[in-house]
Simulated scan of single mutants.
Amino acid sequence: MSKPLAHATIVARRSSERGYAEHGGWLKSFHTFSFASYYDHRFTNFGSLRVLNEDRVSPKNGFPTHPHRDAEIFSYILNGELTHRDSMIKKGSEGAQGKDFFRMKRGDVQFTTGGTGIAHSEQNESLKPVHFLQIWALPWKTSLKPQYHTRSFAEESKRQAFVPILSPLAAGPDATPAEEAAAEPKIPETIPIHADFVMGAGIIAPGSTFNWTVGAGEGVVSKTKKRNVYVHLPMTKNGKAKVRLDDRDGMVLEEGDGAFVTGVNLGDSLRVESVGEVEAEVVVLDSD
């Protein structure tokens, strides 16, 4: 059993305090950080974490084609389906994950490096709503070559422990074009990101505890002291899921809540205990 992190500061970001927007009756979006029409100077980024939106899109609706530059953008699907199309991938040419590679389902993570410029659309082409997290990170350098990745992560694995989802590109900021094309991540079986950033996800049964190792272990991240870890509990269980962080009585997160964890170092173990009525799906965003 890990000990509480006495040197860590943990500050809750309550769901009710997030920005919120509805667009045309088809999109409901909560914003942890300043985004579009929502601005709060206190919440512009957290380390290289720049955007954390919790979105619901109605059936047969979505985001039309729009451009992005110099951002690492990824979607974590919680429920439903989301169809991603962009200026690099054409329907019918989607690659290794098969014919429906472009259609993301629960368990899928879609990742785009905006770099020098890419245009994409995200549409709910199904007959049911889709619920997902859209997350942006600031890359370690600008004008990167656009990249695109999608990967599925098993539900069973997430019920055993936190599963790494993204980790830094192994070749680092000075990667050659060949190393960029190879797209090898620091942690095998994860999606490579152009940032000193690790993402993990877990599904924690009531009464159980998972431990997040800050920096995801030796040799993964560059910054080893005073990392920034954001923990988010999505709104997936009608308010029945709750977690307690670091065994602190005053640090219970309800659905939609998050927490800023600062002052932690590589190798620290952050306890996340499920204290609600049902299992809790937790996302951890660990950055420089």
Results as ranks from 00 to 15, higher is better:
Asn228Glu: 07
Asn265Ser: 13
Lys225His: 12
Leu245Ala: 05
Gly98Lys: 07
Gly47Arg: 10
Asp70Glu: 13
Phe162Gly: 03
Thr176Ala: 11
Ser157Asn: 14
Val231Pro: 05
Leu144Glu: 08
Glu54Val: 03
Ala6Arg: 14
Val243Arg: 00
Ile193Met: 08
Leu166Arg: 08
Lys3Val: 14
Pro146Lys: 10
Ser222Ala: 15
Leu49Glu: 00
Val198Ile: 04
Ser16Asp: 09
Phe35Ile: 10
Phe101Tyr: 11
Thr190Ser: 09
Thr236Cys: 10
Pro4Arg: 02
Val243Leu: 09
Met1Ile: 12
Leu266Glu: 13
Ala170Cys: 10
Thr213Trp: 00
Asp86Ile: 01
Ala201Phe: 02
Val231Asn: 02
Leu78Gly: 03
Met199Phe: 05
Met251Ala: 11
Trp140Thr: 09
Pro188Cys: 07
Thr83Gly: 13
Ser15Lys: 04
Lys186Trp: 01
Thr116Asn: 12
His131Tyr: 03
Gly202Lys: 00
Leu138Glu: 14
Glu255Pro: 04
Glu279Trp: 07
Ile10Pro: 05
Ser37Arg: 13
Leu78Arg: 00
Glu273Thr: 14
Ala280Phe: 02
Thr9Asp: 09
Ala6His: 14
Gln160Trp: 02
Ser157Cys: 02
Lys242Cys: 11
Ser121Phe: 08
Asp70Phe: 03
Lys145Asp: 11
Ala182Ile: 10
Ala201Trp: 00
Lys60Glu: 07
Pro234Ser: 06
Gly80Val: 05
Val272Glu: 00
Gly115Lys: 01
Leu5Trp: 00
Ser58Val: 08
Ser58Met: 15
Ile89Ser: 10
Glu281Tyr: 10
Glu125Met: 14
Asp100Val: 05
Ala6Glu: 12
Asn211Ile: 06
Ala96Met: 12
Val57Ala: 06
Gly62Met: 02
Pro206Trp: 05
Ala182Glu: 14
His84Arg: 07
Ile203Gly: 02
Thr209Cys: 11
Arg151Gln: 15
Phe111Tyr: 15
Pro188Leu: 07
Gly276Arg: 00
Arg50Glu: 01
Gly117Pro: 02
Asp174Thr: 12
Ser157Tyr: 00
Gly80Leu: 07
Val214Gln: 04
Ala12Trp: 01
Arg69Tyr: 12
Ala36Ile: 08
Ser126Asn: 03
Ser29Val: 12
Glu281Leu: 10
Lys128Trp: 06
Val221Cys: 07
Ala21Val: 13
Glu179Gln: 15
Ala259Arg: 06
Ala154Glu: 15
Gly92Ser: 07
Leu144Arg: 08
Arg159Thr: 09
Glu22Cys: 10
Asp268Leu: 09
Lys226Ala: 15
Gly263Leu: 04
Pro188Gln: 04
Ile203His: 09
Met1Val: 14
Ala21Pro: 06
Ala280Tyr: 04
Leu253Gln: 03
Lys91Gln: 13
Glu94Thr: 13
Pro139Lys: 05
Lys225Asp: 11
Phe35Pro: 02
Ala241Leu: 03
Ala8Pro: 09
Gly215Pro: 10
Arg103Gln: 15
Gln97Arg: 15
Val252Trp: 00
Gly172Ser: 08
Lys158Ile: 06
Ser208Ile: 00
Val221Ala: 04
Pro139Asn: 07
